[in-house]
Each structure stands twice: as structure tokens, then as C-alpha cells.
Amino acid sequence: MKWHEVSIQTKESNEESFALFLNSISKGISVEHSLDILKQKIDDFEDKYRLDPKDYPESDIRITVYFDQTEDIEGRLGEIHDFIESQPLDEKSAIIIETKEINEEDWENEWKKYFHSFRISEQFVIVPSWELEDYEFQPDDKLIKLDPGMAFGTGDHPTTSMCLKMIEDTVKPEHKIIDVGTGSGILTIGSHLMGARDLKATDIDELSIKVARENFELNGCAEDIVLETGDLLKSETGTYDVIIANILAHIIDDMIDDAHDRLNAGGSFIASGIITEARDDIIAHMEGAGFSVEEVLEENGWVSILARKA
């Protein structure tokens, strides 16, 4: 199968606007920051990352989005150009758009040079399978072995890392958990490492289901996880102690009431993928539905919320 790769180089200040738009016309995006930006944002950068400078944009950010060969790529490019023209973006004249066609197997190998082992919290460490033999970890580390493939969720995006921090503080072995929109399966794997064994992971995208299954097998947790194709919580009839959803703000908003209905008393709702501008509206909806907001984390314009059912 072939894919159309569209890369957009732009100012970092335009990231949120592009992310919201591109996620609405595709199944996901990747964002590469220049090394100068990464060094400013990440403590102990040199210890955590082993990056080749030539693989990263010289300045600002590069946003990459993929469309499969069945897509009308000229139509999609037209939508992107129309978006740029209609939005108050910074330095529009400096935005560079490049496209190319790639084979799926080339894509799957190309992204590996950007993805390396790194610590994401006090206990969780993300390790791609091709670095397992070389990674030196501490006795208390909880290793998430990951091959993201073409599903999104590598742990390096703030929305995923904040979710994992909340999982680290919230999930108990006795909890029954569902991860809605599991993507690469990273949050379900993190929950399993915290001792949970009654786990369910769902995604509407069949490619994500395939990648998640492979990662569950890689981490030796597949037998404890029910993996299904599902549209949010619409077909769920059971109840859970923890519901996890790292998606987008408007989708989180759509599932708040269902999340409240599907949680046991005292259960937790970990919601992420929320832009800062949508935070107050999401919190208001949660509180109106009967949730108590316990914790709000913010990083680089993104928000994660831990809410509890009274």
C-alpha cells in the first residue's frame, strides 16, 4: 500500500491550530520540533535523547500527516491551503508544504530514526523494541516496550505523558479499566504495569487495533486485555473503575455523560487531548455531569484532567 506524506514546516505558535485542523481530516499527525526547541522544553535533554540533528527541522516545527492512496490528495492539499488562508496564523509566507508518495514498508522503517528510549515519569520508561538490548534501566523502572507503527501514541506527546503520570498515581491492581481510542495501546500497557489485569482497549480504527495487539504481545499482557473495535463508549454496557481517553477535546466532550454512566461510584475518568482553550468548558461539563475534578495537568498548550465520580 502507498501513502501520501504531507509535511508542513511552520512556526511553533501555529502548532495547536494545525493539529486541530489536520486531525479533523486525517487519522493523526506527527510533530517534530527543532532541536533548539526540544532543548528548551526538556530537562536533562542530553541524557534522555540521542538524536541526529539532520533528522529534525533546522528551526521551528515540522508537522507531518499521512493519507492513504485512496484519498484525493489534491483535494486534501486544497483544504490545507484554504485553512492557511482563512486562519490568523503567524508568518504565513514562511509556511512550507512538501508532499511525496511512499510505500508503507518505507514509512514503517523511516520513523524509527526519530523514536528512541526515554523516561516519561518516575517509573515509566518508553523503550522501542530495537533498543531493548542496549537500554540500561533501574530496578524499579516499568518498561513500556513499544512499536508505534502507523498508530499514534509514542509517549513523547504531552497528552500521552500526562496520562501516564495520572495512571501511575491512580491505577490499582483491583481496578477494571477501559482505554478508549487506544491507538498504539500505550496507556493500556501502562495500566497493566501498575498491576491491573481486568483491561479493555478499544479503537474505531482497524490499523490501531492491529498495532495495539502487536504491542500487547510484545509486552506480554495480551492475555489480560480485551481488544475490540469500538466507537467511544456508545456500545458499552458494563461498568468500570477507570476510564481513560486520550483523544481530542470535542470528542471528550461528547463522551463525558457516557463516562459518568459507565463508571462505578468513586471511579476515575482520565481525559486528555484537550487544548488549553477548551479546558474550562470541559471542566464545567464534567462538574455538571456529576464529576469532581481532582487534578488538572497542563503542558505546552495541552491539558489532561483527572475527574472522579462522586
Rank of each mutant, 00 (worst) to 15 (best):
K2M: 13
S7T: 14
S7F: 07
N14E: 12
E15K: 14
E16C: 09
E16D: 09
E16Y: 09
F18P: 10
N23M: 10
S26V: 10
S30T: 12
S30P: 05
H33M: 01
S34I: 03
L38H: 02
K39T: 07
K41N: 09
D43M: 11
K48D: 13
L51F: 15
P53W: 03
D55H: 08
D55P: 08
P57V: 04
I63C: 10
I63S: 03
Q69P: 02
G75M: 07
H81R: 13
F83S: 02
S86R: 13
P88G: 12
L89F: 12
L89M: 11
I97Y: 01
E98N: 15
E98I: 02
E105M: 08
E110Q: 11
E110G: 06
Y114D: 06
F115L: 07
I120L: 12
S121W: 11
E122C: 13
I126F: 06
L132S: 07
E133R: 10
D134K: 14
D134H: 05
F137D: 11
D141P: 06
I144M: 04
D147M: 01
P148S: 12
F152K: 00
P158F: 09
L164A: 00
M166N: 02
D169P: 01
V171Y: 00
E174N: 00
H175V: 04
K176L: 05
V180Q: 05
L187G: 00
L187V: 01
S191W: 01
R197D: 07
T202V: 14
D203Y: 03
D203T: 05
E206A: 03
V211N: 03
V211F: 03
A212D: 09
R213K: 15
L218S: 00
E223I: 03
V226L: 12
L227W: 06
L232C: 12
L233Q: 01
T237Q: 02
G238F: 02
I243R: 06
A245M: 12
N246W: 03
D254S: 10
I256H: 11
R262Q: 05
A265G: 01
F269A: 14
I270D: 02
I274S: 09
D281W: 00
A289P: 06
G290I: 00
F291W: 02
F291I: 13
E298N: 09
E298T: 11
V303A: 08
K309G: 00
A310P: 13
